[in-house]
Design a binder for these strands. Sequence first.
DNA 1: TGGGCTTTGTGAATGTGTGCACGAGTGCCT
DNA 2: AGGCACTCGTGCACACATTCACAAAGCCCA
Lengths: 230, 230
Amino acid sequence: MAPDRNRRRIPDATVSRLPVYLRILSEQGDEGVDSISSERLAELAGVNAAKVRKDLSYLGSYGTRGVGYEVAYLVYQVRRELGLTHDWPVVIVGAGNLGQALAGYNGFGERGFPVAGIVDVDEHKVGTVMGGVRVRHIDELPQIVQTKRVNIGVIATPGGAAQDAADRLVKAGVTSILNFAPVVLSVPHGIETRKVDLAVELQILSYHEQRRSGGVAGAAVGSNPRTATA
Amino acid sequence: MAPDRNRRRIPDATVSRLPVYLRILSEQGDEGVDSISSERLAELAGVNAAKVRKDLSYLGSYGTRGVGYEVAYLVYQVRRELGLTHDWPVVIVGAGNLGQALAGYNGFGERGFPVAGIVDVDEHKVGTVMGGVRVRHIDELPQIVQTKRVNIGVIATPGGAAQDAADRLVKAGVTSILNFAPVVLSVPHGIETRKVDLAVELQILSYHEQRRSGGVAGAAVGSNPRTATA
DNA sequence: TGGGCTTTGTGAATGTGTGCACGAGTGCCT
DNA sequence: AGGCACTCGTGCACACATTCACAAAGCCCA
């Protein structure tokens, strides 16, 4: 069974849901639940049951018809697929507000992403301690990445410094980047990046709010001479 | 032309890209650029030019063939569509690490989302000042939402408190929620929610890292192939 | 043992998003 | 004025994602 399941590519949409299933399954496991149906898991994850089954089917046939999925076993399989069988130390670039918060957020370490280091360009911040980690100078980045075997970098700098941070991370040997700066990074092929932009999220909510409250009824859109452009 | 553009539903994928275009367009405007082609905008946004044109076409025909888009005018149109013609005050629930960072993040106010208030259950935190905003008790939530006309709430609590925070926000009259807690919220129909889960993002990166480093090669994962990546 | 109940796994249908390719305008130059 | 170079707007085909619906497979009990 599970013959060449390894090389199987899992759809992006599924990959982004697996962590959610994993958290729920872990919680259920902690509460003593041994077995769970796709129906129940779907309910807890806020999705459709068929989607859960299809998602899980990409990992292999780990369910039992008529019964459901064995929680502990499924947790193991999802963790394995996500590469969570060992820790992935991360390095944070930028010791400002956000960098501090991230360093102090225990959820990282608990979920297998210990903070291997936090760096900043600002000499004044170097040496201070955040979330149990001492801030070091950004020039030490390569050394941290090498000695701590870091593959994942987190950019928590202002927008203007983000591209430089990315360049330094890549040069130091990092191959995945989580970017909190509101900038589109340009990185070499093969480097994985993900972006989290708080302002974008709020603007999407704004769109829905605006739509809710009477639509775009704005300023007489029917005719559209470029009158008052400002 | 543009007859009932108002009621036109814009695809989700497009809505999530509009803020990115908007930021780039604003920057270009500040740099004195008057006109921009879909090609150039696409390059700056890291997407395909056809996609840019299709996205913008949902707003209306605001380009000029052979020339491009007038930056100032397009900025105005995108802002209007996103409902950014006026500010949307937000209230933050949870004055921990993340809440602090969010309150202190100027990007919010600058982009039209001033922090109308930040609340917490912990009496010890009440009264302290974060990012220029005084922390108030969570029981004051309804009053803040009412007096400041807040439509958007941000949940920055630990997972265990998130659902309660959501319930309180909804009861207070908030209709959109940005959730940073690693929990699936259950809210009444009609309430818009978006979730940002840092751990999920890292786990997605982990998946790609794991895949990069020799696939799911089964048990022997201990070895971490970081040889000479430089 | 066999029948009934439950739940998985997945083909097929539907819906959503992407990218190409090209017609249709627009401005510029001769 | 006419032709040319450029860029938008969009129809179409393809790819990806979601959902339905049902046969296959397992458990339990008489």
